[in-house]
Design a protein around this nucleic acid. Structure first.
Length: 280
DNA sequence: AGTATCCTGGAA
DNA sequence: TTCCAGGATACT
C-alpha cells in the first residue's frame, strides 16, 4: 500500500531524523538485508531521497542504502527530535524492537532507526553511489508523477497499449508512483472505467486522468498518506487519507456523485473499486 | 492477460 | 479454517 504519498511521508521524516547523523552500529537479523557494518558504521547520513516508491539513504562514503517497504515494511525512529510523543500503534506489528524487526541502526545523539516488516516483502540493499541509478529496481522505473512525467509522455504511453488502464497506471516501469489506492481514486475522479483499454482513451480523458492522478497524489501527501494495512511514518504516526478515499475500499457504499453502489472486482489480480454509472 | 509467489495477521 | 490484503516479479 505504500505508494508515492506514503513513501514521501516516510522520506520527509527520515530526512528530519537522520540527516547529518552518524551510524554507530548496525544489527542485521536476516540475511535478506545485505547491510554490512563494515561499509556503514562510522559514516554520516548525508541525505534521504525517494525514487517512485523506493527510498535511498545516502552515506558519507561511496555507498547508499536503497530500500523498498513494499506493503508492510516500516521505518521506525526512536530518539530525539520527535515533536510529539510517538504513538507506535498496533500497526507496528510485533513492536520495536520485536520479532519482525530485521535491521537496527544505532545513531549518534541517542537515535535508533528500526526496520520492521512482518511479511518481509520489503528489501534493503547496500549499493555503491555510482550504481544507484543502475540498481535493479531504480533503473526500471518510468518517469514519475509530480516530477518528470508530463502529460505528453503520459498520453504517448497510454496510446501504445491495450492493457486495462488501471493495470497500466500501476506499472512502475511505465510510470512511477501510483499503486492500488490512488489508481482507483484517480479513475473515479476522471470518470473512467478501470477496465477500459488504455489506448481507447480520448485526449480529453487522458488529460482528465493525468490531472486526477496528480490531484489524488497531492491530496495523499497532504493527508500524510493512507494508513491501510501497516503504513506508519517513522515517528509512529498514521496518515489520514484512508478516511478520505473517493472509492478505494468503499464497495457497497454509495458513489459520492450519483449514489450508485460502488462495485468491487478483480483486475490484474488487484481489488478494484468503481462506480459503474459514473465511470465509463 | 492472468496467476503463483514471497509472508503474516486479521477478518470472514 | 480458509481467505484476503497490496508491490513487484516470474512464469504460463
Amino acid at each position: 500500500m505504500p505508494e508515492l504519498p506514503e513513501v514521501e511521508s516516510i522520506k520527509i521524516q527520515l530526512v528530519k531524523f537522520l540527516k547529518n547523523h552518524t551510524i554507530l552500529k548496525v544489527e542485521v537479523h536476516n540475511t535478506k538485508y545485505n547491510i554490512t557494518g563494515r561499509d556503514v558504521v562510522g559514516n554520516k547520513i548525508t541525505d534521504v531521497r525517494r525514487f517512485g516508491k523506493a527510498l535511498v539513504i545516502d552515506l558519507s562514503n561511496d555507498y547508499s542504502i536503497v530500500a523498498h517497504v513494499k506493503m508492510t515494511g516500516q521505518f521506525i525512529y526512536k530518539g530525539p527530535n520527535l515533536r510529539t510523543k510517538p504513538v507506535y500503534t498496533k500497526k507496528v506489528v510485533g513492536g520495536v524492537p520485536g520479532k519482525h524487526t530485521h535491521v537496527i541502526f544505532t545513531l549518534d545523539r541517542g537515535g535508533t532507526l528500526y526496520f520492521n516488516d512482518y511479511r518481509r516483502f520489503g528489501w534493503m540493499e547496500l549499493v555503491q553511489k555510482s550504481k544507484v541509478n543502475s540498481q535493479n529496481f531504480i533503473k526500471k522505473l518510468g518517469h514519475e508523477f509530480l516530477k518528470d512525467l508530463g502529460l505528453a509522455e503520459f498520453s504517448e504511453i497510454l496510446s501504445k497499449t491495450k492493457k486495462p488502464i488501471k493495470v497500466l497506471l500501476m506499472d512502475q516501469t511505465k510510470m512511477a508512483g501510483v499503486g492500488n489506492i490512488y489508481a482507483n481514486d484517480a479513475l473515479w475522479m476522471a470518470k473512467i472505467n478501470p477496465q477500459r483499454k488504455a489506448d481507447s482513451l480520448g485526449k480529453k480523458e487522458q488529460t482528465a486522468l493525468f490531472n486526477a492522478i496528480e490531484s489524488v497524489l497531492k491530496e495523499g501527501i497532504k493527508r500524510g498518506g493512507a494508513s491501510e494495512l501497516a503504513f506508519v511514518t517513522p515517528d509512529g504516526g498514521e496518515g489520514e487519507y484512508q478516511d478520505f478515499t473517493l472509492v478505494y475500499g468503499r464497495d457497497g457504499e454509495p458513489c459520492k456523485t450519483c449514489k450508485t453502489q460502488i462495485k468491487k472486482i478483480k483486475l490484474g489480480g488487484r481489488g478494484t473499486y468503481f462506480c459503474s454509472k459514473c465511470q465509463r
